[in-house]
Structure formats: structure tokens, C-alpha cells
């Protein structure tokens, strides 16, 4: 499942227009990667599309870091 991080990374780089080396598991989308609330909604949509899963709204709110996203995705694919 190690490629989940790589696939998440690629989506984050494309969506947020950030350097790949900044996209580490501890990075906060908002504080470290410059996302706003609308970017987050779009990111989650991109994760759903890429991994063919559905991330419920209440779970979306708990996804704050790259690691949060990877953990959630791994548990549901």
C-alpha cells in the first residue's frame, strides 16, 4: 500500500500547485501547503475519484494533514 502516499502526493502537488518535497505526511493542508477550505473540498473529491471511495462529510473535517488522508484512504480501499 506504499503507493497510496505517492498517489496522494501527486494529487496534492497538482491541486495545490506546491513543490513535491513539501508534501510530507506531517504537512497540514491549510497551515503548510496554502490550501483554503474550498481547496480542501476539491482535494477530497480528487481522492475519492483516484481511489474510488466515498469520504463522508464528517470524516472530511478530520482530514487535516497528508498523513490523515493516507490513513483514511488505506483503511477504506
Amino acid at each position: 500500500m506504499s503507493d497510496v502516499l505517492e498517489r496522494v502526493k501527486k494529487i496534492v502537488v497538482d491541486n495545490l500547485d506546491v513543490e513535491g518535497d513539501k508534501v510530507v505526511e506531517s504537512a497540514s493542508f491549510i497551515d503548510d501547503l496554502g490550501a483554503d477550505s474550498l481547496d480542501l473540498v476539491e482535494l477530497v473529491m480528487a481522492f475519492e475519484e483516484e481511489f474510488n471511495i466515498e469520504i463522508p462529510d464528517d470524516v472530511q473535517e478530520s482530514i487535516r494533514t497528508v498523513g490523515d488522508a493516507v490513513t483514511h484512504i488505506k483503511a477504506h480501499i
Binding site: 474550498l38 473540498v41 476539491e42 473529491m45
Partner: peptide, 10 residues
């Protein structure tokens, strides 16, 4: 509706 972009309106 889940596929509607958050950037659509703005």
C-alpha cells in the same frame, strides 16, 4: 451533487 466543484459558484 458530490461531483460539483467548490469553485463552481465563485
Amino acid at each position: 451533487p458530490r461531483k460539483v466543484s467548490p469553485f463552481f459558484i465563485p
